[in-house]
């Protein structure tokens, strides 16, 4: 029996080191943007705290199993009848309560961080990109720039991007692991995801939510450029790309997979996003109050942006 216990301990240690050792190279733990960094830091903190809890439980269990196994005791030993003890139970409840309080506070903080625009780049106006999914593609509309791409995304680095997400079909989930966690895109409302890239580079994104036969290949590439390069790219697209028409867009929506393509204009002009634009909170059943303020803020925000754009 003893050998087996050692084996268990050894296996868990090996797994633990593997998990921790491999961390740097895992996408989620190799963040390239402020939101992903919040999430990666939380993840590492959780791994350490949870690792400690697991170790305590393992140690206690092994101690009990080794010390109180029958083969170590005299045959006439009669285990006593033990009721609970108030101190033991207070500790067993108290320590987890403290851990949960600590994690709860941290969780609330992180929630507000990932749900708002990253503070590093908040001085500059965010770039608004509408990302809408159809079976099984991603359409990226840049309303301010008046261009649209399919299955690839160019963004300026070091600037906040405000993704407006919705779907032309089933629920999908917009996810660029190295820039930050995902959010659902749905057909009857627009959700908002704030991301930013700290460095220039190439990343990949995908639909992470199962949405039918073609989901596995519903991926897209993300390229973060300097603001200047981004502007040059926009200019180039405006000069060279075909305009997107209603017929063309209908064609694009047909179920299937497509490569990359680029257009001038956006489909939002003739096929606008769903009307329930609730900013970062859309659940009607909850936080009605907060939602209302959120709502109006965003509307104003968008309006001013559009005015700015037209006055250029």
């Amino acid at each position: 029996m003893k050998v087996n216990l050692k084996g268990t301990l050894l296996a868990s240690i090996v797994f633990g080191t593997l998990l921790l050792g491999g961390c740097d190279s895992l996408l989620v733990l190799d963040p390239k943007g402020p939101q992903a960094e919040v999430q990666a830091n939380d993840t590492m903190m959780l791994i350490y705290i949870m690792g400690a809890i697991v170790l305590v439980v393992f140690a206690m269990l092994i101690f009990m199993l080794v010390k109180y196994r029958a083969s170590k005791q005299s045959p006439d030993y009669e285990p006593p009848h033990i009721h609970g003890h108030w101190l033991v139970e207070t500790i067993c409840i108290g320590v987890p309560v403290l851990i949960v309080i600590f994690l709860g506070v941290r969780s609330v903080e992180s929630n507000y961080l990932v749900e708002s625009a990253p503070e590093e780049y908040v001085e500059e106006e965010p770039l608004v990109i509408y990302a809408s999914s159809s079976d099984w593609k991603w359409h990226f509309s840049y309303p301010e720039q008046g261009i649209e791409t399919v299955n690839y995304l160019y963004i300026p680095a070091n600037r906040n991007i405000e993704f407006k997400l919705y779907s032309h079909g089933p629920i999908t989930s917009f996810w660029i692991p190295q820039l930050g966690g995902q959010k659902y895109a749905m057909a009857d409302m627009v959700t908002t995801l704030h991301l930013a890239a700290d460095v220039e580079g190439e990343f990949w994104g995908r639909n992470a939510n199962f949405a039918g036969a073609g989901t596995a290949e519903q991926t897209f590439d993300v390229t973060a450029l300097s603001q200047q390069e981004f502007d040059e790219w926009v200019e180039e697209v405006q000069e060279t790309a075909e305009p997107i028409t209603e017929e063309k867009f209908e064609e694009l929506l047909e179920p299937g997979h497509l490569g990359r393509s680029t257009y001038t204009g956006t489909h939002l002009e003739f096929s606008p996003a769903p009307e329930h634009n609730h900013g970062s909170s859309d659940d009607v059943n909850h936080d009605q109050h907060e939602e209302d303020t959120d709502h109006s803020e965003h509307e104003n925000h968008n309006d001013t942006e559009h005015e700015d754009h037209s006055s250029h």
Binding site: V100, S107, E115, Y184, T191, S280, S281, D282, D283, H286
Partner: peptide
């Protein structure tokens, strides 16, 4: 990730962790 916002998520995050106790 359905977009119900930081407030709702915070509440359900805490209740979920509390079940661990």
């Amino acid at each position: 990730t359905m977009g119900q916002g930081a407030f709702t998520n915070s509440i359900f995050s805490i209740t979920t962790m509390a079940i661990a106790i």
